[in-house]
Nucleic acid binder design. Structure first.
Lengths: 161, 161
DNA sequence: TATTGTTATACTCTATAACTATA
DNA sequence: TATAGTTATAGAGTATAACAATA
């Protein structure tokens, strides 16, 4: 139980987050934890001039050559218009290319350049090392369970009302 | 393994998110899951004219009468300036009050009004019902483990570099 | 008609510095 | 001098409508 508020007498009573609050605020702990991961990631990626979104996009393009923008947007769970600036930035820095698809000239096949693959490897190594610290004291089993829980929540996503 | 990209021949090969990607992208699954919870929450709270932040603030004030703004900001893991508009909105709608603290006239003691407590109960009921759907198929043990993992990650937060 | 990528735009959330009034 | 709350502001992330080119 987390103590967050002093009672009427600052030196005495301490109010707490109620059990009710903890039970109902599924998003509460999740957001706090995500903030920790996000801010750690931002700091780790700063030397590479990457943010969480550009880092994620770069990894997915490196690992899935030929990916189209609409597929990448879906994989990253963001809207297509918001992906454009991310791909723009990676392309401007010559980390990826937009190749026209011959069979469908509306689409682009995204591919990482050699520079993109190299930066990706370095960034992944740095992030992996950092995450080891964040995951200290957590058993592999517990982590696996947590990942499964998150995947289940995602698969329970409600179809648009 | 998640299929996200068609190979050279759309009808044939399917690329996948590599094991490497899944291992290194701790934030990847977390963000997707958080998006699901967040967007479900937004939809659920719309009838009450609440957002995740105003909802969280309201619950914490209802459950911790006398809370000060700086404590609330810390509990919500947001900066003080960003809390001001949230508290403003709740106060404008007469869901909470800013009571001056006699012993420290710089601070406010936040308290929910009757209307605030009533709206809170209704919103919590709606959210709880929705979350039951999101958590379908997840055992209580697994959920507990997932929550513990998140708390451990949070406690491993690195001090500012 | 429908889809891919794009532009424009608006809204929310976040982060920082500087101010005021109290301590 | 330090702290609680505030203002102003800038930067990210997100969501929607509408467009051109192509299917």
């Amino acid at each position: 139980m987390k103590k967050i508020a002093p009672g009427p007498d600052p030196d005495e009573g301490i109010a707490t987050v109620s059990d009710r609050t903890l039970r109902t605020l599924l998003g509460y702990q999740m957001k706090r934890t995500f903030n920790v991961i996000q801010s750690d990631l931002s700091r780790t990626l700063k030397p590479f001039d990457l943010r969480m979104l550009t880092y994620t996009a770069l990894i997915l393009i490196v690992d899935n050559p030929g990916l189209r923008q609409s597929q990448l947007a879906e994989a990253m769970d963001i809207e297509r218009p918001n992906l454009v600036v991310i791909v723009d930035e990676l392309e401007r820095r010559d980390l990826i290319l937009r190749d026209r698809v011959e069979s469908d000239r509306r689409a682009y096949a995204l591919k990482a350049t050699l520079a993109g693959r190299r930066l990706c490897e370095k960034a992944v190594a740095a992030v992996t090392a950092h995450e080891k610290l964040l995951l200290k004291g957590i058993s592999p089993d517990a982590l696996t369970t947590a990942m499964k829980v998150m995947q289940l929540i995602e698969s329970n996503r409600l179809r648009e009302a």
